[in-house]
Design a protein around this nucleic acid. Structure first.
Lengths: 193, 193
DNA sequence: TTGATTTCTTAACCGAGGTCAATGAAAATG
DNA sequence: CATTTTCATTGACCTCGGTTAAGAAATCAA
């Protein structure tokens, strides 16, 4: 699939686009390509943009005593609205690329202009917002208090792709344990089958 | 202090009341007294009221396999707005009295009428709402990922009263550990001093 | 006050994650 | 392709919380 089509494709999940709309989205489209390790948002920065991952994989993490504490991974078609983008306060976390990634960036002005031109897109934007909120709630509920081994199994069920495309030490960080522990958990699970 | 004065007292934290206002608050005032163990909200119920604890102590908890998982304690001057009160969906948790308690209950109609009569109270209600949100955020951040021993020490610093008025096995539940573990933690801390 | 009930502490044993160190496998680099 | 760096696994040892069981201490009621 060509790069220009990725964003059109994203909207097509939610709504059927006319020829004219497809054209305008393509023109409006601001797409950037990043390399592995590139940083989309730094701690202390105020986010001017929100993101939509069209291709690749991105992580959101805190830095504590030089250690990455990964809070979330985002992959194809995941939208990211940094807290800092909403609050206009300095970000407490980083966002950076785990893989080479293609990202569509949104600004407030551009979104407003776009929604004025195409009011019928308003409900879709709301829906996307809701789904972000719901997703956050779910991941909080499902991770609180559960032992790491269960968390890993839930991850296997819910996001099997992640386990294959992300280095294990990052998965470990995401689960809140050391890489060695994840290794043992995997061994335990394997042995018990 | 007499029972009728408790609610007036609560508002006085935030604003200076005129004689007239004091009178009206006393008349508006709907106060209930509960015994230890009385239940203010059951799982499955839709909350018709929000609460303000004027005296005593109340716990909010889930029931999992018959076990209480205590999420929060509320004491003097703590307001409680159950999620179910906002969403109108069945509550996922219980609220019940740890001690004999005196509670002021609020309904939407009564609050609206009250704020129409005294518009100058609107900002205080907003402020109270904000402080609830902030408090929730803080307690989430500070408990996630921290080991139980640290959580107990933070509790000692932030809410020393709780430790003296609430049975230890409830504190343990609140910290997410077994009573025996809390006993050992206390011993460890004591020995190391 | 006394007896019953509730709550707290202690001990022994187990399992699971942290830490450190060593080794092997895989990937990036030139 | 060879070398260097990164990443994953394993073992030994330690700490800490869970579990079970027993008994002490505090609380409550008759």
């Amino acid at each position: 699939m060509s790069t220009e089509n990725l964003l059109v494709n994203y909207f097509s999940q939610y709504i059927t686009l006319s020829e004219e709309e497809v054209e305008i989205i393509r023109k409006e489209d601001i797409i950037r390509e990043y390399n592995k390790g590139d940083i989309l948002l730094r701690e202390g920065q105020i986010a001017k943009e929100c993101f939509l991952i069209l291709k690749g994989c991105v992580k959101r993490y805190y830095l504590e005593d030089g250690e990455e504490k990964i809070m979330e991974f985002y992959t194809e078609n995941d939208p990211i609205t940094p807290v800092s983008y909403s609050t206009k306060e300095p970000s407490k976390y980083y966002i950076s690329c785990v893989e080479p990634s293609i990202v569509s960036t949104g600004t407030e002005e551009r979104t407003q202009k776009f929604l004025q031109t195409f009011p019928r897109f308003v409900p879709i934007f709301v829906k996307i917002g809701d789904s972000i909120t719901a997703k956050r709630q779910v991941s909080l509920d499902s991770f609180k208090n559960l032992p790491p081994e269960i968390r890993y199994q839930k991850l296997q069920e819910n996001r099997p792709d992640l386990i294959n495309r992300v280095p294990q030490y990052m998965i470990a960080s995401y689960l809140g344990i050391q890489p060695e522990s994840l290794s043992r958990i995997r061994k335990r699970i394997w042995d018990s089958k």
